[in-house]
Computed example of a mutant assay.
Amino acid sequence: MKKLSIVVPCYNEEESVPLFYPAVEKVVKEMDVSIEYWFVNDGSEDNTLNELRKLHANHPQEVHYVSFSRNFGKESALYAGLQAATGDYVVDMDVDLQDPPEFLPQMYKLLQTGEWDCIGTRRVDRTGEAKIKSFLSDMFYKFINRISNTRIVPGARDYRMMTRQMVDAVLSMREYSRFSKGIFSWVGFRTKYLDYHNIERVAGESDWNTWKLFKYAFDGIADFSQAPLNIAVWIGSTSAFIAIIGFIAVIIRHALNPDAAVFGWASLVSIILLIGGLQLLCIGIIGRYIGKIFLQVKQRPIYIIQEKK
Rank of each mutant, 00 (worst) to 15 (best):
S137T: 15
D138V: 13
M139N: 13
M139P: 00
M139K: 15
F140H: 14
F140L: 06
F140P: 03
F140N: 05
Y141P: 06
K142M: 08
F143P: 00
R146Y: 07
R146D: 03
T150S: 04
R151H: 14
R151L: 05
I152Q: 13
I152M: 15
V153G: 01
V153T: 10
A156Y: 00
A156F: 00
R157M: 04
D158C: 07
D158H: 09
D158G: 11
Y159T: 10
R160E: 10
M161I: 13
M162N: 12
T163N: 04
Q165H: 06
M166R: 10
V167N: 02
V170W: 15
V170T: 05
L171C: 06
L171K: 10
S172W: 05
M173N: 08
M173K: 06
R174H: 11
R174C: 03
E175F: 09
S177D: 02
G182V: 05
G182L: 03
I183D: 13
I183M: 14
F184T: 14
F184V: 12
F184E: 15
F184G: 14
S185T: 13
W186C: 05
W186R: 14
V187T: 07
G188E: 07
G188Q: 11
T191A: 08
Y193C: 00
D195K: 12
D195E: 09
Y196V: 00
H197V: 09
H197W: 03
N198K: 12
N198F: 10
N198H: 15
